[in-house]
Design a protein around this nucleic acid. Structure first.
Ligand SMILES: [Mn+2]
Ligand SMILES: [Mn+2]
Ligand SMILES: [Zn+2]
Ligand SMILES: [Zn+2]
Lengths: 146, 146
DNA sequence: TATTAGATAATAACTATTGTCATTCATGAA
DNA sequence: TTCATGAATGACAATAGTTATTATCTAATA
């Protein structure tokens, strides 16, 4: 087996994760892929090093990396489609623990604006701001438990 | 069959949708439900009026409403989890047509700020801005086709 | 009337993701 | 260096969300 670079071992140790070979290969796959890869992309890449690796292991490790803050989810998924009939300009407070969604009136935020003109020929339709964090209810639950 | 209110007929006509009974019941279900209901929520509610309605009909109509802009998706889903290893503060340009994701450096936007202090005991962890629109490639494709 | 299009309902198929569990492995202590 | 222990893995099943297919019905059209 190829020697694991010290940096990865240190990274894992810092985050209290066992430095396994699979974990390292998955991590390197993520880092080597451009843009915002999907679990399937990462799986395909990791398979080049470990053909026997399982997709579930990839999912489990992505989850671990996300939990530890090594990676971030591009736009948080709520488990199923969530529909919004509110046409007033507004944003959302999203609890990362219970996934609850609350409206946040646009007036409560400084409206997001671009410094430059439209970037890279992109035609903007709307700007969606998700304020991610812990809702009051979850925060109190956690405090009580701790 | 209960007579369809004129407003719904007008709404459908404006968006080039047939004003069917099911469609109206689904629409009213969405409007009557608080917050950001899921297809399942809407299905359960619609079933109170039309017990025989199918979940597929609900999905199809939600999709139609989304396409026509009558409803919006809370945070746009990319089909699968997308992972981001970029730790620099940045936002995303998301094409609603091809679902491609591009990074947008935070410096290119006025950083989102709250006017008031933290709303409703919510502990903010991070702010995720999705700039939704049509990417250059899709725009040119559409132009060529039209 | 004959043809067509649109809507619905039932269901099959597909994709993404998670759970179970036996086996193996990493790690820190002795 | 062992060794005990819990964590991680892989095979696989299961579930959830969603989309596609199809037959049927109805309404509009020629
Ligand atoms: Mn909303
Ligand atoms: Mn990014
Ligand atoms: Zn919460
Ligand atoms: Zn595009």
């Amino acid at each position: 087996m190829k020697a694991a670079p010290a940096e990865f071992r240190a990274l894992c140790h810092r985050h209290r994760l066992a430095a396994t070979h699979q974990r390292q290969v998955i991590y390197e796959a993520v880092m080597s892929l451009p843009g915002h890869p999907s679990p399937e992309d990462i799986y395909e890449k990791a398979r080049k090093s470990i053909p026997s690796i399982s997709l579930a292991t990839v999912y489990k490790n992505i989850r671990a990396f996300l939990d530890k803050g090594l990676l971030q989810e591009v736009s948080l998924h709520h488990g199923s489609l969530r529909v919004d009939a509110n046409h007033d300009p507004h944003h959302h407070l999203v609890c990362t623990r219970c996934r609850s969604i609350m409206d946040l009136d646009e007036a409560e935020m400084v409206p997001p604006r671009f410094r430059q003109k439209l970037p890279r020929g992109f035609k903007v339709l709307r700007i969606s701001v998700d304020v991610l964090g812990i809702c009051a209810e979850c925060a109190s639950k956690k405090a009580r438990r701790a």
